[in-house]
Design a protein around this nucleic acid. Structure first.
Lengths: 158, 158
DNA sequence: TATTGTTATACTCTATAACTATA
DNA sequence: TATAGTTATAGAGTATAACAATA
């Protein structure tokens, strides 16, 4: 990967032999870039950015208000306004008025957005599956558990 | 995390009990967002973006030409020009002429860039270490090996 | 001709500050 | 007053296309 980020104890500069373990810090950091790269390619194949893909993914099974979107995406409200504007302009999402609160809107997928999201999710799954298919089923299972544990812990810590 | 990205088989919508395994696809995707989030916070603490931090990390132990940077970062040459321009304007990197090839430049860290990079790398290491400190040493070791294997495979597949 | 790098242009993404409308 | 959301503005990040200089 040669991302160059991490502690550098096992970076590309220092004898990158195939048997050198990266360590947990560099390993996780470089793995995150690799997964983001896969995600970026899948998204680009549908002419959307990673952020747009993330927005679509969030909306897959629910309609979400702007404030909640900004919390989930960790973005300012105004950034979400622009994000949704651009997605709406491209016919992927729509703003839906909330009868009970006339200040609020909920954002939901259009039919086109739903189609794109389903296709991209399937491609991403295939792409990641391809990445891990060199691991044994037991290793894949361990990896899945470890990733799940970290994600849960990360969700707590914020 | 509720990133919403992945297959959705174990997404936030479907009974997010603490015992549900995310599966290897969603687990890796959500983990990648978590790590990137940690990285983004560390970088932001030094007033740089993730991309800028990545650039600095690459330059930690070598000087690199623009074309090679664009290959490593997977960006167009013109994007790298802008990236290096901004980093240079902030005194973090400098362009160094190459005597043997008067078209070329090599980009290297300034003293200030080096200081920032060392501090940020240490903070990132601490941040990731904190994330994984709930895992047993054996689990951390397994995780490190699995991440390393995937990164190596990803580097091959491109 | 090929390679290295920059410039011009146009978009997306993001934050800050100020604003409107509704609660 | 507080909340939901937008607008205005400025800057970072990115790609495409065209370019200059050197190999």
């Amino acid at each position: 990967m040669t991302t160059g980020i991490g502690t550098g104890r096992a970076g590309i500069g220092s004898a990158p032999s195939p048997t050198t373990d990266l360590g947990v810090v560099d390993g996780l950091v470089q793995l995150s870039f690799l997964i983001q790269s896969l995600l970026g390619r899948v998204a680009a194949g549908h002419d959307v950015s990673i952020v747009q893909a993330r927005l679509l993914g969030i909306l897959r099974d629910r309609e979400v208000g702007m404030v909640e979107l900004s919390r989930i995406l960790d973005l300012e409200k105004s950034s979400v306004t622009g994000l949704v504007d651009r997605a709406e302009r491209r016919g992927l999402v729509r703003r839906i008025a909330v009868p009970e609160d006339r200040r609020a809107v909920r954002v939901g997928l259009t039919a086109r957005g739903r189609t794109l999201t389903a296709a991209a999710a399937a491609e991403l799954a295939a792409s990641v599956a391809d990445l891990v298919d060199g691991l044994s089923p037991a290793q894949q299972d361990r990896l899945s558990r470890l990733a799940t544990a970290l994600v849960r812990r990360g969700a707590q810590a914020g």
